[in-house]
């Protein structure tokens, strides 16, 4: 960051909003703003993680049994897909920094592609759960051991992956906007802050999944 700040300090450009004194102030403010927003997101998911930890401690057996019925191969594939999308996102930020417009556009498209892929797989998993009667409330039937608490894991499964999927959809919306502005050539090595900030959000959503996958599928 510090090696760019000299450039940012140099002179104002048309991208500095009226309330800021200079580009450096704007750059630092928007980055801090995004980090604070991600902090609220941590607390948002934290509520569900808290509930998960408590129920897991109370009903370890039921949770262990319940998680055997999740589709580990699909979950693992989605994990890989998201990690790759994080990579393409990082490359997008780098392209913007270096001013490679074409590369930037393609990297955004690839990131969106992987994001959509993830959601597609998630949809397959959900419909599979429906067919196996593993949707709590609606049609839950559990044949095996574990007792009624098995259903609690599935409540958490749908709430947590559902909230994550909502964040993915929002992310795709943001990426669409980023794509359109990138095609118009808004971003230059002097002004690529929005790409960086969207990147932060995208990485955060990926990291949430990195936690969800082992919690809901593996252990």
């Amino acid at each position: 960051m510090s090696d760019h700040s000299a450039v940012l300090d140099a002179h104002q450009d048309e991208h500095v909003a009226h309330q800021f004194a200079n580009a450096k102030q704007q750059y630092e403010s928007s980055n801090l703003g995004m980090w604070l927003f991600l902090m609220t997101e941590v607390m948002f998911f934290g509520g569900m993680f808290g509930a998960y930890v408590i129920y897991r401690t109370w009903y370890p057996e039921a949770f262990k049994i319940a998680s055997t019925a999740t589709n580990v191969p699909l979950g693992a594939m989605n994990t890989v897909v998201l990690i790759v999308s994080s990579l393409t996102m990082a490359l997008a930020v780098q392209s913007a920094q270096l001013g490679k417009k074409k590369m930037l556009v393609w990297m955004i498209i690839l990131t969106m592609f992987f994001g959509a892929w993830f959601l597609g797989v998630k949809a397959i998993e959900y419909s599979e759960k429906w067919h196996h009667h593993h949707v709590p409330g609606a049609n839950f039937i559990w044949e095996g051991d574990g007792g009624r608490e098995v259903q609690i894991l599935y409540c958490l499964y749908f709430a947590m992956t559902g909230m994550h999927a909502v964040h993915m959809v929002v992310g795709l919306g943001i990426m669409t906007w980023l794509l359109l502005t990138a095609i118009k050539g808004h971003y230059t090595p002097k002004y690529y802050n929005p790409v960086e900030i969207c990147g932060l959000y995208w990485h955060f959503v990926d990291i949430v999944w990195i936690f969800l996958f082992p919690m809901l599928y593996l252990i």
Binding site: W58, E149, I152, C155
Partner: peptide
């Protein structure tokens, strides 16, 4: 009826 707090499900 996704019962996180429902005593009937534990």
């Amino acid at each position: 009826r996704i019962g996180f707090f429902d005593p009937a499900l534990g």
